[in-house]
Design a protein around this nucleic acid. Structure first.
Length: 280
DNA sequence: CTGTAATCCTGCGAGC
DNA sequence: TGCTCGCAGGATTACA
C-alpha cells in the first residue's frame, strides 16, 4: 500500500502504539527471503535493543535504536509493520519482535517485495538512504526542481517515480499530482515551462499533505486508517468522469506503469498560446 | 544518458 | 463453481 502518505501513517501509528521506549526481548525471523540484497542482522545485536525513535525517509521507515543501530524498513508493495497485542500469528509473517510490554512488533509481507535491514549506526543508515533518495517533497528547493525536471527528456511520470529526484512519490500520487498540476504524464520534462514545474512541485506537496491528513489510502483492507482513496481524482478511475470537466479519464502505460489522466485537463501538448492579434 | 522490459512474489477480480 | 489471465502500492537490473 505504501507510498509516502501510507508510510507516514504507519510511522505515526507505531509512535501512537508507544513503540518508542520499548525494548526488544526476543526476535523471531522466518525462513523465507525478503527482497535482495538480504543482510542478516538478526542476532544478539537486537536482543534488548531499546527503541529511541521512529521516523520516515521517503518510503522508508527508520527505527532508531538507543545503541545507535538503525533498523531500515521498506514495505514494498504489500508490507505491513505494526505493533499489536494480538497473539494469533498471521500468515506471511516474516519478522516478529517480542517487546517488553508484552506486545509484538511485526513485519508481514505477502508479496515479499519489502526489506528489513540493520545498520550499525546512524551515519551508515543515512548514507545508504541518501544514496538512493532525493529531497523530501516538502522541502524541495524550487531552483533544484526546475533544473531536475528541465534537464531531461524523460516523461513526467518517470521523473515523478524516480526517487532520486523527489523521495516518496509512487504511482498513485504521481498521477494525482500530475492531474492537479494539469500536466500530461507523457510530457517531456524539458518541455515544461518554469511555471509548470513550479505548479507540479506545489501539487505534489499538496496531494501528499492531503493524503497524510486522511491517513493515507488503503486499497487492501486491513490497513490502518486510510480514506484518501475516496479522494482520488484520476487514479483507478478509468472511464469515469473527470471531477473538473467530466471528460472520461483515460489510462496509458508510461514508464511501465498505468498512468491515469484527464485528456481534457491534461493535454499531451502544451496548449498553444491564444494567438494575440498581431500588432504592427 | 535514454527508455523499456523483466524480475522478485502472492492475491484478487474479470471473464469465460 | 472453478479455471486462467492480467494486473497490483516498488526497486533494481539487464539490455537495446
Amino acid at each position: 500500500m505504501p507510498e509516502l502518505p501510507e508510510v507516514e501513517t504507519v510511522v505515526r501509528a507505531l509512535v501512537k502504539q508507544e513503540l518508542v521506549g520499548c525494548s526488544v526481548k526476543r526476535v523471531w525471523v522466518g525462513s523465507k527471503q525478503l527482497r535482495r540484497p538480504w543482510r542478516k542482522p538478526w542476532s544478539a545485536s537486537l536482543t534488548n535493543a531499546k527503541v529511541a525513535a521512529v521516523r520516515r525517509r521517503g518510503k522508508w521507515i527508520v527505527v532508531e535504536l538507543a545503541d545507535g543501530g538503525r533498523l531500515v524498513v521498506h514495505l514494498g508493495m504489500s508490507g505491513q509493520f505494526t505493533v499489536t497485542a494480538d497473539r494469533e500469528e498471521p500468515d506471511h509473517l516474516h519478522i516478529r519482535f517480542d517487546l517488553d510490554n508484552g506486545r509484538q512488533l511485526r513485519f508481514r509481507d505477502p508479496r515479499r517485495f519489502g526489506s528489513v535491514e540493520l545498520f550499525p549506526d546512524d551515519d551508515t543508515a543515512r548514507k545508504y538512504l541518501d544514496g538512493k533518495l532525493g529531497p523530501e517533497p516538502f522541502d524541495v528547493d524550487p531552483v533544484y526542481f526546475r533544473a531536475a525536471v528541465g534537464k531531461t527528456s524523460r516523461p513526467l511520470k518517470a521523473i515523478l517515480l524516480d526517487q532520486r529526484v523527489v523521495a516518496g512519490v509512487g504511482n498513485i500520487y504521481a498521477d494525482e499530482s500530475s492531474f492537479r498540476a494539469r500536466l500530461h504524464p507523457q510530457r517531456e520534462g524539458a518541455s515544461l515551462t518554469l511555471g509548470e514545474v513550479d505548479r507540479l512541485r506545489e501539487a505534489i506537496k499538496k496531494v501528499l499533505n492531503e493524503a497524510i491528513a486522511y491517513g493515507g489510502s488503503s486499497i487492501d483492507e486491513g490497513f490502518i486508517g486510510g480514506r484518501f482513496q475516496d479522494e482520488f481524482r484520476v487514479y483507478g478511475r478509468t472511464g469515469k468522469p473527470c471531477p473538473a470537466c467530466a471528460a472520461a479519464i483515460e489510462v496509458v502505460r508510461v514508464a511501465g506503469r498505468s498512468s491515469h489522466y484527464c485528456p481534457r485537463c491534461q493535454p499531451a501538448r502544451r496548449r498553444a498560446k491564444p494567438q494575440a492579434a498581431k500588432k504592427h
